[in-house]
Design a protein around this nucleic acid. Structure first.
Length: 656
RNA sequence: GCGCCUGUAGCUCAGUUAGGAUAGAGCGGCGGUUUCCUAAACCGUAGGCCGCAGGUUCAAGUCCUGCCAGGCGCACCA
């Protein structure tokens, strides 16, 4: 709604400004005045135009005000200060329109075409399948999943991929660990379950890393394992397949606890076995995007220039094919990226990997044609978002440069690195975990998580602690069956965790701290949930006492009385206006790849509701009309907030 | 050395993309509010050379330049 109105405002301003020199009108900025008493929207446009029109800002603002009063949404247009133009909306009309839109399932969003004219692929999670997921992986997955929800809300077709690097060094290390260090076999771990499989691998990976460090010659075993894994046959390859698949299953279960799901698991082994790289390699050679180096430090390699220098000069260069003929990670990534856009000239085979409890299947790539049900069409996207942490920007740039070198400029532009900063551990968190820090690390404000060192907070452990803590709080407040209490505790835990990971802007490093992450008060997910639970409580009581009352509210036509009432209650109007901004928060989230925008918007709205709730005794309100209006506001709030929370992956429990 | 990011209240962070009115929030501190649709909440209060110095502008936390401090990246690892 607001976006629509801003369009109208801009048109009106453009129409009111005399076209003296034929130059385009500068962008009209619409902002929020410092206080609602001044107005609902503010335009500093007169300042910008003053110089061009050679007139005083105040006079220009007066002219603009005249034109803007013609817009039906606008009640008043007033000039304030040195030349601000403050707009006041027709409050009753705005509220009625928003409420109608919410009840119609549009939440103030004007229906329009999806942001992009085809399918969008979002790739996220991508955890090396050799150990349990940790807190850093959760940030990736939660950001990725919320982004998918936001895009789908805007009508975008989205395919969610979780890339499985099942033939890499990390899996090889755990395989070497099972073959040389583990007291029991992988099968025995799965049968006896001394600890979950991914937990066992977590420790084994750290042990293996230390074992390599004790005697670097042992890394020859890693090389040997890698070759056997890539080849895909024999006992080592079989063990690698088992390790990777079981870890993937563990990751999927962890993510499913948080409401995070995928459409497809593309596996690196299939990229190798189906020779994706050969197709990409041929194209890269044909179009001279890569060059063979005869001498120098990269002698015998195929490299890609990253600084535009010619083949003879030695500038910045990235090795794509090693002198032993094997392809690097970036090379494989270029092939994979080409496939995502349908540019590779070949496709995977597919098999159902598992089903979700809503009946939707999760597919995995495979190397052989399958006789099972036909898979949907994967890949062939018009735009691709790779959710990968900031440290990999350089490699993502190379992948895009690769597409460009092949002449796929449009696809390169549509290859988006959705980058974010890492989650690190605060020194206090390390102390909580019993991790001893080196002296140099104690001075720092955070310590990097390291799967290799086994240094980190495991995702399942954290979720478990959150559920325990939430369960205690729930049982202290209500007497409920164990099942019901657990279900509520679970929703609260997910909410606390997801909100904690979303509220920071993406290029802020999160120094993970148990005290903050386990908090349910203040700017937290449970605070947001609680605001909706309160609103829902009102309607539960209302329905008990007066069945059918809600329908009456939803049929209500407030008319002039509603407008008068809103004019007298600035604080309530402010909340309505804020509630109408959901679509704007969502659009900004997409434009800036910033989920903290809707997260913070929701928090601000919840604050306004809690204040409203505190000030007004809604059900005991004596005046019948006022009571109806208050109920209408509460209904509007809870609908909008529930939707916003859904987009952040947060469910509202029945009670808290 | 080159590239990118960060520096705002005691702590953790918004606000910088798109300059605009009195720089906000949470936590922590201090002082208050429950015969409830109400405490996972609400109110009040203290707390700020917005890293430093120049510049542009009617207007700078926001843009430009330089400096200081911290982080990340620049593998024939992924």
């Amino acid at each position: 709604m607001l976006q629509q109105l801003c369009q109208e405002i801009k048109q009106a301003v453009a129409g009111a400004v005399p076209q003296t020199d034929g130059q385009p009108i500068p962008d009209i900025v619409v902002e929020t005045p410092p206080s609602v008493q001044l107005g609902d929207l503010a335009l500093p446009a007169a300042f910008t135009l003053a110089k061009r029109l050679k007139k005083a800002p105040k006079a220009i603002a007066e002219t603009l005000a005249e034109a803007l009063r013609e817009i039906p949404w606008i009640d008043k247009a007033e000039v304030a200060g040195a030349g601000y133009l403050n707009l006041k909306l027709r409050r009753g009309r705005w509220l009625t329109e928003l409420y109608r839109s919410i009840l119609g399932g549009e939440y103030g969003l004007f229906p329009g075409p999806p942001p992009f004219p085809g399918k969008v692929i979002v790739e996220h999670t991508n955890i090396n399948p050799n150990k349990a997921a940790h807190i850093g992986h959760l940030r990736n997955a939660v950001i990725g999943d919320s982004f998918v929800r936001v895009m789908r809300f805007l009508g975008q077709e989205v395919e969610v991929q979780n890339y499985i690097d099942n033939t890499g060094v990390q899996v090889a290390d755990v395989v070497v660990g099972f073959q040389n260090l583990s007291a029991i076999t992988a099968e025995e771990v799965l049968e006896r379950r001394p600890v979950p499989f991914d937990y066992y691998c977590w420790d084994l990976y750290a042990r293996t890393t230390r074992w390599f460090e004790e005697n670097p010659e042992r890394t020859a075993l890693r090389q040997q394992a890698l070759q056997e894994i890539e080849h895909g046959t024999g006992e080592t390859a079989r063990l690698a397949e088992l390790v990777a698949t079981e870890n993937v299953r563990a990751h999927l279960a962890t993510m499913n606890r948080l409401g995070i799901r995928y459409d497809l698991l593309p596996r690196e082994s299939d990229i190798l076995h189906l020779h994706f790289w050969n197709w990409a390699f041929r194209q890269l050679k044909e179009k001279e995007a890569i060059q063979f180096i005869g001498q120098g430090k990269n002698a015998g390699c195929w490299i890609m220039k990253t600084d535009g220098s010619g083949p003879e000069e030695s500038g910045d260069e990235k090795v794509i094919v090693r002198s032993n003929g094997t392809v690097t990670y970036v090379g494989k990534d270029i092939a994979y990226q080409l496939w995502k856009f349908g540019l590779l000239g070949m496709d995977f085979h597919y098999r159902p990997f598992q089903g979700y409890d809503d009946g939707k299947p999760l597919w995995a790539s495979c190397s052989e044609p399958q006789e099972t049900a036909a898979a949907p069409s994967f890949g062939k996207a018009c735009r691709v978002y790779n959710v990968i942490d900031q440290r990999q920007s350089y490699l993502q740039e190379i992948v895009a440069a690769g597409l460009r070198a092949l002449g796929f400029h449009l696809e390169a532009d549509n290859s988006v690195h959705f980058s974010y900063e890492m989650v690190a551990l605060s020194p206090r968190c390390c102390a909580d975990l019993g991790i001893e820090l080196k002296e140099e690390d104690q001075q720092r404000s955070y310590v990097e998580v390291s799967g290799r060192k086994g240094l980190g907070v495991k995702a399942d452990d954290l979720i478990h602690r959150l559920e325990q803590l939430a369960g205690e709080e729930v049982r202290a407040r209500h007497s409920l069956s164990g099942e019901e209490a657990a279900s509520i505790a679970h929703r609260i835990a997910v909410s606390a965790l997801r909100y904690f990971l979303l509220k920071y802007t993406r290029n802020s490093i999160i120094a993970f701290d148990f005290k903050e992450a386990l908090s349910f008060e203040g700017e937290t997910g449970p605070y947001l949930q609680y605001s909706v639970v309160r609103a829902n409580n009102i309607f539960r009581k209302l329905e008990e006492a007066e069945p059918g009352a809600l329908e009456e509210i939803r049929r209500l036509d407030g008319g002039a009385a509603l407008d008068d009432w809103l004019q007298k209650n600035d604080d309530i109007w402010e909340m309505v206006l804020m509630a109408s901004r959901l679509p704007d928060a969502i659009r900004q989230a997409l434009a800036n790849l910033e989920l903290s925008i809707p997260a913070r918007w929701a928090f601000t709205l919840a604050q306004k509701f809690n204040l409203f709730y505190h000030r007004h005794r809604i059900l005991s309100e004596k005046d019948r009309e006022t009571r109806l209006f208050l109920l209408l506001i509460a209904d509007l709030f809870r609908s909008q907030m529930t939707k916003a929370l859904e987009l952040l992956g947060i469910e509202v429990p029945d009670r808290m």
